[in-house]
Design a protein around this nucleic acid. Structure first.
Lengths: 212, 212
DNA sequence: CAGCGTTTTAACCAAATGGTCAAAAATATT
DNA sequence: AATATTTTTGACCATTTGGTTAAAACGCTG
């Protein structure tokens, strides 16, 4: 018995019930949002009974919170990294674009999902995300930009605007993915390819804009 | 009686019931989304009975569609304009940023609302938006960029990427408004001021990036 | 003011939905 | 093999929710 269990675990042949639930919940919640998601649909997607769902997770809210935090936990710390790290400005920008796009390409619908739920109750959700330490500290990054401006290495630009530009260009195409795809006629593969390009194009664009 | 009615109409002292419903529905739908909105809440917000709501609008879906189309109708045609107009590239970019931000500042939550519902069923909603003519034709704009590149007036850049950058920087701050506000510590007034700035800053940024 | 169409309401209804429970099935322990 | 423990299920419940209905209130016209 032990051997079989180990074999499964190692080979990852089968998901445990809890894993099945989490995968199903993620799919349904991300697609439908908290309000639109139905516990029955999650149960169906996981191939189990609705009662079993409540056996593993007390209620919809608790299940949702697990999914939301997992999603938010992938997106927010990365943004904070660019605030905190010690690299030179241009390197930071390059690293952020490249790493962020890589992550989100694996789950293109996470940003819209997270932003949407945050919009419903900003204080509650952002409170959860940044609970305890780990609060965002943009000061360092903004100061770094000002310093470069003062040094004369880059053009005069409002640090806040530069930060917004960086984040906007990186994330928005995912938020508007269906719109861009439909209106610009991009299939799945072309969209991916475009975003791969942008890992380099965005930093180039920004640096061209601010470098003296 | 006639005089009084005219007075109300002219002075817009009182909203008609239908107007009250539409205003209430917009507020609730934009805040909660189609799935999260409750007909009872809309009725309450409008200060009327739920039955009266159904007297004016057959069902939730129909009411939602009116609100959605009104919202989408404000956002999408503007994007299409930059594709179709005949101005020089830089002017187009400046006009787009300025006009778009002006419009959205009046309804900061519309973009997230629209993008979110589109995400739920892209073909259905985008079909509605671009029904009949009025289909988006980015070709002209993209061709214009390529032409400028060929002429040598701007740097070599993928037209698609430039278009995405323009739209992203203009719209995303609204989509992520609560996040930016909370994480960057901007109050309502500061956010507005920042977006006002960006009407000029974004075009400047783009032109600096691509001008030779 | 009587009569007629329109607007508004309170009371209901049926379906959907989140959640529970006791029993069965599977698994682990002795 | 017998027993205890955990996992899974079908049936059920209470509440919420979109939607209906019949009657009342309103406003106008002859």
């Amino acid at each position: 018995m032990l051997t079989i269990w180990l074999k499964m675990k190692i080979g990852k042949k089968d998901k445990t019930t809890e894993e099945k639930i989490l995968a199903a919940a993620k799919k349904i919640f991300v697609q439908q949002g908290m309000a639109g998601a139905r516990m029955q649909d999650i149960a169906d997607e996981a191939g189990i009974n609705k009662a079993l769902l409540h056996y593993y997770f007390k209620n919809k809210e608790q299940l949702f919170e697990v999914i939301f935090m997992e999603a938010a936990g992938r997106l927010f710390p990365r943004i904070n990294e660019i605030f905190l790290s010690d690299q030179p400005l241009f390197e930071k920008i390059e690293r952020f674009c490249s790493e962020y796009i890589t992550i989100v390409l694996e789950n293109p619908y996470l940003p819209l999902f997270v932003l949407n739920e945050i919009n419903r109750d900003p204080d509650y959700f952002l409170g959860k995300v940044w609970k305890g330490k780990n609060v965002p500290q943009p000061e360092k990054f903004l100061a770094q930009i000002e310093k470069e401006v003062a040094k004369g290495t880059i053009r005069r630009i409002s640090p806040l605007n530069l930060l917004m530009n960086l984040i906007s260009m990186t994330i928005f195409p995912f938020v508007a993915k269906p719109m861009f795809q439909k209106n610009l006629g991009l299939d799945e593969w072309q969209f991916r390819a475009t975003m791969e390009q942008r890992k380099k194009e965005i930093p180039k664009f920004i640096i061209d804009a601010i470098k003296k």
